[in-house]
Design a protein around this nucleic acid. Sequence first.
DNA 1: ATGGTAGCGTAGCTA
Length: 264
Amino acid sequence: MRIVTWNINSVRLRLPLLLRLIDETAPDVICLQETKVVDDSFPMAAIAERGYNFGHVHGMKSYNGVAILSRLPLTDCARRNWCGREDCRHAIAELPGDVELHSVYVPSGGDIPDPVANPKFAHKLQFLDEMAGWCGERQDPARRRIMLGDFNIAPLEHDVWSHKQMQDVVSHTAIEIEKLTALQQAGNWVDVGRHFVPANEKLYTWWSYRAQDWNVSNRGRHLDHIWVSPALVPALAGYQVLRDARGWEPKPSDHVPVLVDLAL
DNA sequence: ATGGTAGCGTAGCTA
C-alpha cells in the first residue's frame, strides 16, 4: 500500500499538479493539507476519474482544510476539533487491513515564538498538548495506525538548514520541539522519515516561497512527517520525499509530497 | 536588521 501526504496549498489552484502526482506515483491513498476549500467545492470528480472513488474531505473557506482520498474503501470516517475551534485540521479514516489513518495540519504558529505575546503560538502549543493527551489515552502498540501531515515543526538539527540560525525561528524552537517530542512519545509513534534517513543527514520537505532560488539556497525544513505505530514498523517498505515537486510548473506548492510504502 | 512570496477573495488575514 502506497500512501502520500502533501500540503497542497489550495487543492483547486493546484488540481493539475495533484493529477500529475497521481500519474507519477500511483498512490493508493492521498492525504492533503491546506486544501482551502469548503467540502461542496472540493474537486472530487476529476479525482474520482483517476480511480479515487473514496473521499473524506474536511474543509472550510480560505484557510486550512484536510482530506483523505483513496482508491481503497474508507470506513469510519471522522473529524476531530482541537482547542475548541472548528478549523478543519484533522481527518480520520480506516483503511482495509485494520489501518487507522490520520491527516493532520498543525497550526503554523505565527512569527513570534512567545505564547504570551503571540496567540497563534499559544494555539500551536495547546494543539500539541491536546493531541498528546488524546494519543496517550488511546495509545496501543498492537494497533495499526498512521498519523501524518504538515506538523509545522522541524524537530531535529538536520531537519533545518541551520540549527544555530533557526533556534528562535518558529518551527524549530526548543518549546515546540519539546511539545512535538512529547506527542510522539505519548502516542508511541515511530518517525518513518528518520527510520529511512539517518538523523545526521539533511531532510527537508518545505522551501520558502520567499527565497530568490529555493534550489540554490536550499534553506529547507522538515515540516511534513509520517508517523506509524509500532505494529506497522515491520511493514515499512519505502519512503520518498518528492523534492522535484518544489519546481513543478506552473505554481508549485512550498511543500513537497512525501510518501510511504507499506507491505501489509 | 529587514524584507522577501503566495492564496483567498478582493482588504487583510494567514502562511
